[in-house]
């Protein structure tokens, strides 16, 4: 594990010279050597040097993913008596399969929760339990919902633990439930919604097969294959910066690139997108928390 973290840090440093956001150039040095092809359709499947390096690295890391550290931390949070109400999540929080049951819960969310009267994704449900069952203050959780280099929010570790307990299980968002189906349809509308100064929607970048922004491949989230890519490996340990990040973060950063305002953490809008994408991946096998570039 220690070894893995050292390797991860080295890789992160190597990548640190390459800006990660789409508006920037992901891999200038690594890709400059290749000769460009003439005007014909761009070679979409071609992998740049940085991608090849990263994939080698990911294989090497598979045995000891740094996400495991956060998983262990999350398990500790799940089982410990905590919060103003001095209760553990393991004895109070229902992730949809019964109080305290974690195995298989992640791949069956988002789902409808009668006690909250809402369809919720995993991270949102965990936050709901922390507030309702353990008595944590919503405002405190909202203060810094995403990890920085030196800080990992508790829900991030918790969702990593919960997700890891669905490893090798199939996505099975309960679309037969009309309340879930409704949120799914609303999510589809959100992915279609063009607005903002650049007229972008999710589909501008994720609405067709084989598209790229710079060298970053963009999954087509409307297809089972693309949606599977989109939800796989989240939550993920991100090499660049060495932080553990969740789907809530990913959605926020895509809205940033879309030139939209900031979506609220654990909001209906994010749940609708996660419902749409995860249900489109139904039937695919989840491989557990991953490593992201």
């Amino acid at each position: 594990m220690r070894q893995a973290l050292i390797a991860a840090t080295a890789f992160a440093l190597a990548l640190a010279t390459q800006p990660v956001v789409a508006q920037n150039k992901p891999a200038p040095a690594a890709t400059a050597k290749k000769a460009a092809k003439p005007a014909a359709a761009a070679p979409v499947e071609e992998k740049d040097a940085a991608t090849v390096e990263f994939e080698k690295f990911r294989t090497m890391m598979e045995e000891s993913n740094p996400a495991e550290l956060f998983e262990a931390q999350g398990e500790d949070f799940w089982k410990s008596i905590r919060g103003p109400k001095q209760v553990s999540l393991a004895t109070s929080c229902d992730l949809g399969l019964g109080v305290g049951i974690v195995k298989g819960a992640y791949v069956q969310m988002p789902r409808y929760f009668a006690d909250a009267g809402k369809v919720m994704d995993a991270e949102r449900r965990i936050v709901w339990c922390m507030i309702e069952k353990q008595g944590f203050k919503e405002a405190d959780i909202m203060k810094q919902p995403f990890a920085s280099g030196s800080y990992t929010p508790e829900p991030t570790s918790l969702v990593t633990y919960v997700a890891a307990n669905s490893k090798d299980m199939k996505f099975a968002v309960p679309l037969k439930d009309p309340r879930v189906k409704e949120v799914y349809e609303i999510g589809r509308e959100v992915t279609n919604h063009r607005a903002g100064p650049y007229d972008f929607s999710c589909n501008t970048c994720h609405g067709a097969d084989g598209k790229r922004i710079r060298m970053q491949n963009l999954p087509n989230i409307a297809t089972p294959k693309g949606a599977t890519t989109a939800v796989m490996g989240w939550p993920g340990y991100r090499m660049t910066g060495g932080v553990m990040l969740t789907q809530q973060w990913r959605m926020g950063d895509c809205f940033r690139q879309q030139r939209f305002p900031q979506p609220k953490y654990v909001s209906d809008t994010i749940t609708s997108l996660l419902t749409y994408m995860t249900a489109n991946a139904n039937g695919a096998t989840y491989k557990g928390p991953g490593i992201k570039r």
Partner: peptide
């Protein structure tokens, strides 16, 4: 042609 890190949301404008 020197810039090989390009996206494919739009058509190629090379040449």
């Amino acid at each position: 042609p020197k810039e090989t890190s390009f996206g494919t949301v739009g058509p190629s404008l090379f040449h």
